[in-house]
């Protein structure tokens, strides 16, 4: 152990010695920034993959580390634990954590202007409005139950009239008719259902009063203070990547087939479908990641319906202005 420590110490001294003559160059060297994604590699993150492949982060002087997500990866936790500087979250959980636990988070941008989560059902047993859910079985990931409850409340549907069961991101029970509907990304799962045979129909929670962003770009107040320049650079390079990617949603996903998407078990056609479907939800008149005053107000109002008291101060739009 102590030998190991000595060796490591020795090596770091060697490293320091080696870089000494090059100190002047260090000023121009890329500064590290770690980005925690909120899910496994799919089209949801195509803009960042594009920006990495095209070297936009490097051009901005960033050495970006990309961490894939997964169901146990709670993005906000990665910030608190210091494993990542910036992450993507669902705004309801982030704001709940700020209000209830005093978590030091700031929202500095929003990838989805309209939250892509929605109610997905089969065309043969369609559920087109929240009212259609009465007496039906709806599968919801436990994380999203509050979002659904908000939408039901806003739409005047009694929560007790809907049978909500857990959803584990597998559409099989829906296809087989064991459940009537599920809550999922409407940009993604209808493709899988169609592949298995039946046609799917869906509506966004956003269109029935739950007017929130999704994949909000979140940092801690500490990182916001100490890495402001890097965060602006991150937003700028990511916006470039997203602009490239959305210019033709079918163009870039195939180029990630052997890199970012390799071995995920999903097909490129699926990613192209996803990328095409998410384009209108991401694009914003003020540029990608925009948070207009109107949309912030809409978020605050929607969250108030479920008793989450968001305030304007939780959203910091000044970095977007610097892009």
């Amino acid at each position: 152990m102590s030998l190991n420590m000595q060796r490591r110490h020795f090596l770091s001294l060697m490293g320091a010695a080696a870089t000494l003559p090059l100190t002047s160059r260090l000023a121009y060297a890329a500064t590290p920034l770690t980005f925690q994604a909120s899910w496994i590699n799919d089209a949801e993150f195509a803009g960042y993959f594009a920006a990495m492949d095209k070297g936009y982060y490097t051009e901005q002087g960033l050495d970006l580390t990309y961490l894939s997500g997964g169901p146990d990866v709670i993005p906000e936790s990665a910030l608190i634990a210091g494993k990542a500087d910036v992450t993507l979250t669902t705004p309801d959980t982030t704001i709940k954590a700020i209000v209830e636990q005093g978590a030091p988070f700031k929202i500095i941008g929003a990838q989805y202007q309209k939250n892509p989560i929605g109610i997905v059902s089969l065309a043969s047993n369609p559920i087109k409005t929240p009212q259609d859910l009465v007496g039906k079985t709806l599968a919801v990931p436990p994380v999203n139950v509050i979002s659904v409850e908000a939408m039901l409340k806003i739409s005047g549907v009694d929560r007790a009239s809907v049978n909500i069961v857990p959803y584990a991101y597998d559409p099989t029970p829906l296809i087989k008719g064991e459940i009537d509907a599920s809550l999922d990304f409407t940009t993604n799962v209808p493709f899988s259902i169609k592949q298995a045979g039946p046609d799917a129909t869906s509506f966004l929670l956003y269109d029935f009063g739950f007017t929130t962003f999704n994949d909000t770009v979140v940092v801690t107040t500490d990182v916001l203070a100490s890495k402001r320049r890097e965060l602006v650079a991150f937003l700028r390079a990511s916006r470039q990547g997203w602009d490239d990617n959305l210019a033709d949603p079918a163009a870039l996903p195939p180029t990630f087939a052997e890199t970012w998407f390799k071995g995920t078990g999903r097909s490129i056609e699926n990613e192209v479908y996803f990328n095409t479907a998410q384009k209108p939800l991401i694009e914003a008149s003020g540029g990608i990641f925009s948070m207009s005053e109107d949309s912030i107000a809409a978020n605050i109002e929607a969250l108030a319906a479920v008793g989450i008291n968001a305030t304007r101060e939780m959203f910091d739009t000044t970095l977007l202005e610097e892009i």
Binding site: D72, V73, Y169, T172, S192, I193, G265, R266
Partner: peptide, 21 residues
């Protein structure tokens, strides 16, 4: 399955879960 790495049968399962196969 929950760890967020790129490789492993658990990661593969996760990617395949949403595909109804």
């Amino acid at each position: 399955f929950g760890g967020g790495g790129r490789w492993g049968l658990g990661v593969y399962l996760l990617g395949s879960l949403g595909r109804a196969e």
